[in-house]
Each structure stands twice: as C-alpha cells, then as structure tokens.
Write a protein that binds this DNA or RNA. Structure first.
Length: 385
RNA sequence: GGAGAGGUAGCGAAGUGGCUAAACGCGGCAGACUGUAAAUCUGCUCCCUCUGGGUUCGGCGGUUCGAAACCGUCCCUCUCCA
C-alpha cells in the first residue's frame, strides 16, 4: 500500500539544482524529463500549432533547444487532440524528440478576450475563424493535454490584463486556484506528465503571495508565474515575479510564462526563474527584427543593402556563420520563406545562447557582472530598462 | 493614311463640374511586437518657414462663381484596318 502511494506520488520530472551563484544567488539546475535532461535556466521556443514556425526539429536540435511548447487550445481546434493521441503523442506527431510542454489555453483567455465568456465552470470561446462555440474547463484542458501527451502540462488559468482592479484580480486568482485543484484531480497521467500550477494575482503582492501559498498546498510538480508581460512596465513586472516567486518551494522548478525579451530574461534568472518561454524571437524574426549582441536591429533597412558582414559577429548560429546582412535584407524584402527561416534560427539561437552564457556565468559565480555587461552592450540602462 | 482607346502623385489604378491635395493597391519611410487569431499590425509617403500656406491630374488656350472632370488645339502611347 505504501509503495503504491510512493509510486503515485513520484513526479515524472526531477529537478536538480547544480550550482548557486555566490555573486547573485541565481541558480543552475538540471530538469530530468521523460524525454531527456535539460539544463536550467533555459529558454523554451514556442510551437503553438505543433511546430515552431519555420523551424524543423533538426534545426531546433542544432540550436540547442530543450523544451518546446505547444498549445492546448490550438491543437484542440485543429487537428483535434484525438488525432495527436492516435499519432502517439505530440512528440511523435511533430517528430520532436526532446521534452515538450503544453500551455493550457489560459493565455487564450487573455489573447482572445473579445471572443470568450468566463464562468466558474470554465470559459466559453467563440472560434474566431468560424464562430463555433467551444467550452474549455479546467478538466477539459487537462484531458486534452493528457491526449496531446507533453512531458509537462499546465493548469488551466485566467491570464488577466494589466492594469486590473484589485477586486477582479482577487476573484480571478481565487477562481484560478479552484481551477488548479480541479485540474489536478482530473489529471489522468500523473506518472508520465508533470503538472504545473500557475501563480496569478495581477500586480498585487498579497494576492500573489496567497496564490503561491495555496498552489503549494495543493501540490504541483513545478510552479509557473503567469499574468506578466501583458502591458505592464518593467519595474512592475519584476515586482510581480519577485512577489510570486518568494513563497514558492526553492527546490521545485519555476517557470516564468511568456517572457523572452533579453532584459526580462536576465531579470528572471536573477529572481531564480528556471524556465522561460516566448514567441518573441520567432515573431520578431518573421517581422524582420533581430536580437543581436548590440541590441535589436531591423534587417530590412537601406543601410544593410551592401553590408556583407554577418548579422551578429558574436553569434555562433548557422545564419551568422553563413550569410550576410545584405543577403538577409534581400530575402526579407523579397519576402522569401528561407529568409524568415534564417532569421528565426538566429533569434532563437540568440536566446538559447544567452541562457547558456547565463548558466556559465552562474557556475563561475559572476552572474551579476555578466548581466550588467550584457545589458550595457545591448543599450539597456543599469537597471535593465 | 483610316478607325478606336487612352494619357491622374515613384508605379498600378479610381475619380468625369464644388464634399478632391485627389479613393484603393503596390513600392518607400518610421514604429510596434513578450504562456502566437500575428510571414502581422499602426502611422507617414507633392512642396514649404506646416493646427497654416503654395503648386498639381500630358502641353497650351477656353467655358464657368468654381475644372483632374466640359470645349478647342497640339504632343505622346496602345489596338485594329489599309
């Protein structure tokens, strides 16, 4: 009987802290998952529709990608979670051999706010493409995620906008807690899929604290911080993250959802965040903006028309090693898909390498120096703004 | 030589008496983008001393209170016939 309980309680993932930076307190770790081990802190590219736009799995491996995201809401609508299940799970379906994580659909409660209605039971969405009415509950979200089969799945939450009234932020956060518990109770594969809870509470410290404490009481394999990067200023975001994180168990992985700007990532690492995901590198790439060691550049500018040097001389990616700014500018202006691919490769690699460098700096007990130097070289001020 | 169609801002193309400094698209310029309704979106794109002023719709000349729009004439382009 006891052994059964122990087996049932064993998490499919294991988080091992490998070093704590003497200078900053930031930490490195290894996240052991059913699809391999990944080092933290890490950046996770987003592949909403079971593909990181324009990148093949082989390219993702070459970039050093670890965990890749997919999305519950989008795969539920198309092609349907049953098809992903029949394919043998999302990894087999999209031929990605590394670990994966699915977001619960909670972000769509925010991003599709014009076409949805929230109730205690769940969220009624109106499919923006065809008007279909779709009801997503915490149980349904977990059921879909069980079918999709990622290594890490997320509680169904409400990502609220900023600013939000205290009363609304409180009511929403409390409902998200109830949803988290309902989702956990509905989880059918706790031995193979880790479940993370999500801290909410707007920018109110007491709500963030309460949310974190209650989630820990319910008990999850890891804890995420949601509701940031929704329009708030940098200082507020940093505060929200700190207040969310300070009451979380130190030995569990912490995932800051939706963060991918360089300064934000470095700030997150300072606050002992282990995982971050963001669409920013791939979206910026599609729009012709590149993250470089000297800040962002727009590759379509006239000034690059005869610039035959690499995009970022300091970068080790396939694009920077093989193609010139002039060629990338040409492809961008000609709207060639290959150009989008090359730019996506660079931006994703840039953030993955940023985190590799951050880990190295932590291991060498000089993360603070690394952070300040990196921010200065990219044109951010001392505080990272 | 004859018949017809047409010449509008960088390009394409609406407009055929006042609401037109002139729709719309492309191109160009600038900006945005953070758990992806996003290879997207927003603004600007004749000139200037710019919450106002000045010159525009092939050229010139008319009609009219008023013309890109109507009339005359010239130039140019395209199609068909000889």
């Amino acid at each position: 009987m006891i052994s059964v309980i122990l087996i049932n309680m064993r998490s499919p993932i294991r988080f091992e802290i490998t070093h704590v930076c003497a200078q900053s307190g930031a930490r490195t770790g290894i996240l052991h998952t059913p699809h391999g081990d990944v080092e933290t802190p890490m950046f996770m590219p987003v592949g909403t529709q079971a593909t990181v736009k324009f990148l093949s799995p082989e390219e993702l491996y070459a970039l050093g990608a670890g965990v890749v995201l997919a999305n519950t809401y989008h795969l539920w609508l198309q092609p349907g979670e049953d098809i992903v299940d029949k394919a043998g799970g999302v990894q087999k379906f999209m031929n990605y051999k590394g670990p994966m994580l699915t977001d619960s659909g909670g972000f769509q409660v925010f991003s599709l706010a014009d076409a949805r209605k929230i109730s205690e039971e769940g969220v009624l969405f109106k499919n923006p493409k065809n008007g279909d009415r779709l009801f997503l509950s915490p149980e349904k979200s977990i059921q879909i995620q069980n079918a999709i089969g990622a290594d890490i799945i997320m509680s169904f939450d409400e990502c609220i906008p900023y600013p939000a009234e205290y009363a609304y932020a409180k009511a929403s956060m409390e409902r998200t807690l109830r949803w988290a518990e309902r989702g956990k109770n509905a989880h059918q594969k706790p031995e193979t899929q880790a479940l993370f809870g999500i801290v909410q509470g707007g920018d109110y410290a007491d709500l963030r604290h309460y949310s974190a404490e209650k989630l820990v009481e319910i008990g999850f394999d890891g804890y995420a911080i949601g509701g940031t990067s929704v329009g708030e200023d940098k200082e507020t975001m940093v505060r929200m993250v700190r207040e969310s994180a300070e009451l979380l168990p130190y030995d569990k992985p912490r995932y800051l959802m939706g963060v991918g700007a360089v300064n934000d990532l470095l700030e997150a690492v300072s606050l002992n965040i282990d995982m971050c995901d963001c669409v920013l590198p791939t979206r910026l790439a599609r729009h012709g903006t590149l993250m470089t060691s000297e800040g962002r550049i727009s590759i379509d500018k006239q000034k690059y028309s005869e610039d035959f040097g690499p995009l970022d001389p300091a970068c080790d990616c396939y694009t920077c090693r093989n193609y010139s700014r002039a060629y990338l500018r040409h492809l961008a202006r000609a709207k060639e898909g290959f150009g989008t691919r090359l730019l996506s490769i660079h931006n994703v690699r840039f953030l993955i390498r940023l985190m590799e460098d951050a880990r190295q700096a932590i291991k060498e007990d000089r993360f603070l120096d690394f952070k300040n130097e990196t921010l200065a070289s990219m044109g951010f001020d001392q505080r990272g703004f």
